[in-house]
Design a protein around this nucleic acid. Structure first.
Length: 337
DNA sequence: AAGAGACTCAACCGCTCACAC
DNA sequence: AGTGTGAGCGGTTGAGTCTCT
């Protein structure tokens, strides 16, 4: 009643800025288990110091298993241009025609290069209408500048389609853009996410497997080899992810210093069973490896909170544009400016 | 080698829409 | 019908990186 809209969250009490890997892990595992019926309540339930909106955005744009990352193919770019002509800046509508692509990503691609290309194309067609120029195929700037990492990640999440898109880039096959688009829309990435947002995997093993496949590709961004990430054996065994019900685990994870395999001992000293202990330790070991914590110099904790010092994922000199850097907090970000 | 500017993209902001009551 | 709330959308920002000079 005239009071204006209440803020969606208390900005003083939520963490903002880039997501840390452990936050991502929490969000992914929570949604895998519980779905996302209520974004507003989710952060609290998942033990995240984040705004629900921020969680939603992170999930939709980057963490969703069916999100397709990396190179936009020429056909995708063409489709975006065409769709933009008819729909305008309705990014979510455009995104709905490009399975696996998010509105944010499309918006970025449009703003960064497709807009220019579209404008220049229009100018060209105005100047010399009729002369068909297909040269724009060669200047697929986004394709060239987006790292192979994203393709790798996608390949791990959706191997078939990733290969498709990659081969498609290499060989411009005969199918028309619309045909290609049809194919993409109908068959490509059938979302694993149910209506409630819960990831639809049939059994716990698959669930874990898909999660790790995904995360494996995701966090192995800097491993330039095409080899499979050296996943620990735990991936082959039924292994459940500790969830919000085990907040101690997450807190433990967050406050972990360098991981010391030989020093594995019960953290609470008495409550957890041996089994849980072993499983947690396996899990931690895996996380440590995936997140690169074991290589850190060790003095840094990673508390989850506004002052989080996120781990640095990138090896020096490996990270080009488009690499996963959102979760990479600059240690001292006064690097250049 | 260093600085400046350009580029990219993840994340935030604020608004609108949809729905429940 | 009016109001409150949550979700979703589009625009914008800002930090990191690259490229040019």
């Amino acid at each position: 009643m005239g009071k204006g809209r209440a803020p969606c969250c208390d900005k003083d009490k939520v963490k903002r800025g880039p997501w840390s890997p452990s936050e991502d892990m929490r969000l992914i595992s929570f949604i895998q288990k519980h779905g996302h019926q209520n974004w507003r309540a989710l952060p609290k339930q998942a033990g995240l110091l984040r705004c629900g909106k921020s969680c939603r955005l992170r999930w939709i744009n980057y963490l969703r298993p069916d999100v397709k990352r990396g190179n936009f193919t020429k056909d995708e770019e063409d489709a975006i241009i065409r769709l933009h002509e008819t729909m305008g800046n309705k990014w979510s509508k455009i995104a709905s025609h490009l399975p696996g692509r998010t509105d944010n990503e499309i918006k970025n691609v449009w703003n960064t290069h497709l807009k220019k290309r579209s404008v220049s194309n229009n100018e060209k067609t105005h100047k010399k209408d009729g002369s068909k120029e297909s040269s724009m195929a060669t200047s697929s700037s986004s394709s060239s500048c987006i790292s192979s990492y994203t393709r790798e990640a996608f390949a791990m999440a959706v191997p078939d389609k990733a290969q498709d898109s990659e081969t498609h880039q290499l060989s411009n096959n005969g199918s028309s853009p619309s045909e290609e688009l049809e194919g993409l829309s109908s068959s490509s990435i059938s979302s694993n996410v149910t209506n409630s947002g819960q990831v639809g995997v049939s059994n716990p093993e698959d669930q874990v497997g898909s999660l790790f496949n995904f995360i494996g590709g995701y966090y192995d961004a800097n491993n330039n080899t095409s080899e499979e990430v050296n996943k620990p054996d735990i991936l082959d065994t039924a292994f459940d992810i500790p969830l919000e019900s085990d907040l101690e685990f997450w807190n433990m994870l967050d406050s972990l210093g360098p991981f010391q395999p030989e020093g594995i001992e019960s953290h609470d000293g008495n409550q957890s069973s041996n089994f849980e202990e072993v499983e947690n330790n396996k899990w931690l070991l895996y996380l440590e490896q995936e997140l690169g914590l074991e290589s850190m110099d060790g003095s840094e904790d990673e508390p989850l909170g506004p002052e989080t010092n996120d781990m640095v994922l990138k090896p020096e000199g490996e990270m080009g544009m488009g690499h996963y850097h959102s979760t990479v907090q600059p240690h001292e970000s006064n690097a250049t400016k």
